[in-house]
């Protein structure tokens, strides 16, 4: 069956091609960030740390980093909390209108970012809450909660529902069962959700651009530099942003993977 063999090899190579396409811009940005040319092309220029020095000495970048980190931290805590509450509600209760409730929980990522941005800007400025750091946080929580909810819900689905009931039977109150049974079981997913929502918030540029006013986050700075001309600083900032969000996403995934593997019945 040489034809089969050839098809298999071809298809495996094709996987490689798709991965090249997906990772090409990430690798390119990393390479260009150490490249001396202002307009990178092949052959490459020489190695330099110039672009990193430039951003290191740029106070605007540090201000933006502060906004981004503060936002990501607050968003990860709040959206994971709301996501946990929602996942637990879905896990345990049936009630009238639950489908609408779940739609509310999961729909935000399907709304185009520009429209979210415009709606947020219009509404928040109407109630006098636009142009602040907390404006970005508010909008990001809306967008991140679905991810947190989904991760924690998947984790709860792995739990034997009778565990909670067993705790009640042993005399634990609902609150006590939550603290001693549900939360410890969901903990890897909770931490995972915090990492993932932090990554989403740290990378989000569109809605932040609309509502942030003068409090620019890192992605908004990138967006505004992009509107000028080619500037290799972006690659240096970009590499830093890539490493940050990749680390968070990898931690988020590893947390979910290792735990579910360990608990699989032999």
């Amino acid at each position: 069956m040489t034809a089969d063999r050839a098809i298999t090899i071809f298809l495996r190579l094709y996987i490689g091609v798709v991965f090249c396409f997906v990772f090409a811009p990430i690798v390119a940005s990393f390479v260009f960030s150490f490249n001396s040319d202002r307009f990178p092309t092949v052959p490459l220029g020489h190695f330099t740390l110039h672009w990193y020095e430039t951003i290191y000495n740029d106070p605007d970048v540090w201000d933006a980093l502060q906004v981004s980190v503060l936002t990501a931290l607050a968003v990860s805590v709040v959206s994971t909390f709301i996501g946990f509450c929602t996942a637990y509600t879905d896990f345990r209760y049936k009630f009238f209108g639950k489908n609408a409730y779940l739609a509310l929980a999961l729909l935000p990522p399907t709304i185009p970012l520009v429209i979210m941005g415009l709606a947020m800007l219009a509404w928040l400025s109407r109630i006098g809450m636009s142009g602040q750091i907390y404006s970005i946080m508010i909008a990001h929580v809306v967008m991140c909660t679905p991810f947190a909810m989904a991760i924690i819900r998947l984790r709860l689905a792995q739990m034997d529902p009778s565990l909670e009931a067993a705790a009640w039977n042993l005399g634990a109150s609902e609150w006590r069962a939550m603290r001693s049974v549900i939360v410890p079981f969901a903990l890897p997913a909770i931490i995972s959700a915090m990492c993932l929502t932090a990554a989403v918030s740290f990378d989000e540029f569109a809605v932040a651009w609309f509502v942030s006013g003068l409090n620019k986050s890192i992605p908004v700075v990138i967006l505004e530099v992009l509107q000028g001309q080619v500037d290799p600083q972006i690659n240096a900032i970009g590499t830093f942003v890539f490493l940050t969000s990749m680390t968070l996403v990898v931690i988020a995934q590893v947390l979910l993977m290792t735990r579910s593997k360990k608990e699989q019945p032999a």
Binding site: P25, S29, P219, V241
Partner: peptide, 8 residues
Amino acid sequence: FTSYLVRI
């Protein structure tokens, strides 16, 4: 989940 903007 990684900066779309920088990739573009």
